[in-house]
Design a protein around this nucleic acid. Sequence first.
RNA 1: GGUCUGUUGGUGAAGUGGCUUAACACACCACCCUCUCAAGGUGGCAUUCACGGGUUCGAAACCCGUACAGACUACCA
Length: 544
Amino acid sequence: MTDKEFAEFLFPNIPDISYYEEKYPRRHMNGAIVTRCAPSPTGFVHMGSLYQGFVAKQMARQTGGILFLRIEDTDHKREVEDGVKGIVEGFRQYGITFDEGYGIGGNYGPYIQSERGDIYKAYIKYLVSKNLAYPCFCSEEEIDENRKIQEATKERLGYYGRWATCRSMSKEEAVRRIQNGEAYVMRLRSQGDFRNKHIYHDAIKGDLEYPENDMDIVILKSDGLPTYHFAHAVDDHLMGTTHVIRGDEWVSSLPYHLELFQLLGFEAPQYAHIAPLTKKDEETGNIRKLSKRKDPELAVRYYHEAGIPVGAVNLFLATIANSNFEEWYLQNEDRSYTDFTFSFDKMPVGGSLFDLSKLESVSRIYFSHLKARDVYQEALMYTHEYDQEFYELLQKYPDYSISLFHIEREVERPRKDIASYPDIRKEFWYMYDELFFTKENPYADCKIYPEKQLLMEYFETIYDETDPQDVWFDKVKTFTGNHGYALNRKDYKQNPDAYRGQVSDFCEMLRVMATTKTISPNLYDLLQLLGRDRLLKRLELFLK
RNA sequence: GGUCUGUUGGUGAAGUGGCUUAACACACCACCCUCUCAAGGUGGCAUUCACGGGUUCGAAACCCGUACAGACUACCA
């Protein structure tokens, strides 16, 4: 029996690869990057895939290339109902949109692996016809058995060399066993020698030394679906991927992939292996990869719920993707991160510390650049989902709220007091009477003792809400000066006992009266927004 | 066990043989400014790049060894 006849026996009615090679012509990109996101339909996007998608998107966009979406659903056990939808939606929310692919269309489809069965079989048939693939009948138990022996004798694990028992099986015996109805997988007949070392230049990691592959890896599972390794080679060849951007857990299977491309006669893409997102483990103190099971912050849902805006997450991803991004951004705070030119060789090689406090500080910067109107709009969207009470207040007082958010915003150096949507309520609740006066005693926790006479006199004789800020403050100064307060800080510092206090002490009292807090945005603006009547109501309660 | 990869101040890191008496950011300390906070300003904060050898006129950078850490090691992706 010839190899060709054997291939025909294994894969009858499967076309020759020339059919697919013609159907999917090579792209002509002139150096632009064609890359992809290739998620499994597990239903949700986690930070790792978002990060990968972010990098892929930037690289494709900034070279005028193509980003496409391919669904890798070759594992039925992991599949989740509507999993594809969740993934696509997750990407979309974070601004990752595709030029072609699943659900969008394009000339290189279908873009879902479960519909590409015949394509994979055609290429396996081709390999069989060249005697580069063979059926394997080993049971799971036999493979397990071998592994145990390998572990005990400290040999390399895997199906290779003398462990690859089906490799030498005659075609005739294979035919007989298949006709007998025995289950089998297809394996690659590896041509490599483990002792040979090569260097591969990864776009991110630089030169990597790797041994030639000698594993007869499974390429077609017994359920008739290809393994990741094989589908990757065929799909990225046919779809014209120029750059494979993926997590570095794949580095160790690079030898498989390189051999597959070589034996199939494909030109290998440029690989770019992204270092894992890591964190410091609280128990051991060691740095480790973020884990789906242990770390809730890996799911993008976590940020949605915590009210970290999409824009802040993207800004954060940009800062970990390229270490020189942050410096650029600090000099170009009015620009979008998409204006920055990212490069593979500026990406971290070892691991990227996914630091929540860093994300928070990036988020503060993000919020500080928002216009008051946008803060309002975004807060409306978040509270609609998570805080009905505050949502209704925002809806009831749109102009008032926008004026409130405008304080010390849209200026050269804006405040950085908001890191997430819930912070908006935490920061500003006291400016809404509905929240202020429903508290039993809003001043219960205040450590400031009101000087009744002074405050009453101030509001009766001095405070005039038509005063502009400088006049208002001059009056405060004069007023406190007349009551034994120091006129400036220096005087007070030199001789604190000579004074009743300093202007800031009086302002603090005003601030607490108006807000219950000792820290707040600009006092004058808050007083203006509250207005005389509402202030007097608060004063009355404060003096009680 | 095997394969591969890292290790630079309190933290994240830049740096690929001489422009480095180690960038930048955060944190921290002091002072200045100031109605609070934040922001801003000035100055301080690694005689040294895990450790031990070697190559070189010259090493954080190149080579070897050691230690530690990480990733992978499926008919999962």
